[in-house]
């Protein structure tokens, strides 16, 4: 006990110093605009550095797992390219939608690291280490090695904030394979492993275990990017299926992602707005 006393005394003194110093700095920020801006800039810089350090440690400790995922993805891509017969080094990094008349470079991908990620709210987001400087824009789709994970919402110079698929305000166009019938896929705010696909007509044949993938009817995601598998389904009002889809990606383990750039987005956007204006 006697040994502890000087330590307690030292700690209480330090706490008193921190309290009074904090109070003084608070008073400074209330009375001087320059100091307020400088202190805010310093604190934002410190928070960013801590978040980056935290992410670095997290990524370093999960390198083995990430490597295994990358090897798995490489194998999958090589197999796909083998089947499509276009497996050359030149066109390997780009995605070409099948049977498309669009430019062969419609979609390209750039990798990004997840710096922070929330999964326990109704509106979940995650932050990526790529921003405006890297060509990221709001509205771009984001994929993991296992499938769709979200859409870029806000972008700063170095970072971007992505609306996770686990966000009740996020919906995407998806289809059930092999039929190709499409509907709207959305997380209802319940179990983090499941999302719901609605508006699939009742005459479509669906089986448990069918793959659910992107429909390609949006400018955000290319077609046939996997999302999950059918876990169960029921008829809603006798007209449409309500399908519960088990997600392929576990959002708690999100580390590396790919941001999708649609090179024809501006052209298609202007065409769409013209159609809306004329129609």
């Amino acid at each position: 006990m006697r040994r502890r006393l000087p330590l307690i005394k030292y700690l209480t003194t330090l706490l008193l110093f921190l309290f009074l110093e904090g109070l003084s700095l608070f008073l400074i920020t209330q009375n001087s605009l320059y100091q307020r801006i400088r202190l805010q800039a310093l604190s934002i810089g410190a928070v960013e550095k801590v978040a980056k350090l935290n992410a670095d440690i997290r990524h370093y400790t999960s390198l083995a797992k990430s490597n295994a995922l990358l090897v798995e993805e490489n194998l999958l891509l090589r197999n796909l390219l083998q089947k499509s017969g276009v497996a050359t080094a030149q066109n390997y990094p780009t995605y070409r939608p099948p049977h498309s008349n669009l430019s062969p470079l419609q979609f390209s991908f750039q990798s990004a690291r997840v710096l922070s990620n929330s999964t326990n709210r109704l509106n979940n987001f995650f932050i990526l280490d790529k921003g405006e400087r890297d060509g990221v824009e709001s509205g771009m789709g984001v994929l993991s090695t296992k499938g769709v994970v979200g859409v870029v919402e806000h972008v700063t110079e170095h970072f971007s904030m992505v609306t996770s698929l686990l966000n009740i305000n996020q919906s995407i166009s998806a289809k059930v394979l092999p039929s190709g019938a499409f509907g709207t896929l959305k997380w209802e705010g319940g179990n983090r492993r499941y999302v719901t696909l609605k508006e699939i007509p009742h005459h479509i044949k669906i089986e448990i275990g069918d793959t659910v993938a992107t429909s390609g009817y949006s400018l955000i995601f290319p077609a046939n990017i996997p999302i999950g598998v059918v876990d169960k389904f029921s008829l809603e009002g006798g007209a449409h299926y309500n399908i519960e889809v088990e997600l392929l990606q576990e959002f708690n383990t999100l580390n590396f992602v790919n941001i999708i750039t649609n090179h024809n987005k501006r052209e298609l956007d202007s065409l769409n707005s013209k159609i809306e204006r004329d129609g």
Binding site: F17, L20, E21, L23, S24, L25, F26, L27, I28, Q30, N31, S32, Q35
Partner: peptide, 26 residues
């Protein structure tokens, strides 16, 4: 802290500036 705040208040400086520095010395 007391003398720093007193100097800040009476000299018309940025309140908290002298108290923050005098705390470091203390």
């Amino acid at each position: 802290f007391s003398i720093g705040v007193a100097v800040d208040l009476l000299s018309g400086n940025i309140i908290g500036l002298n108290s923050a520095a005098s705390l470091v010395l203390a």
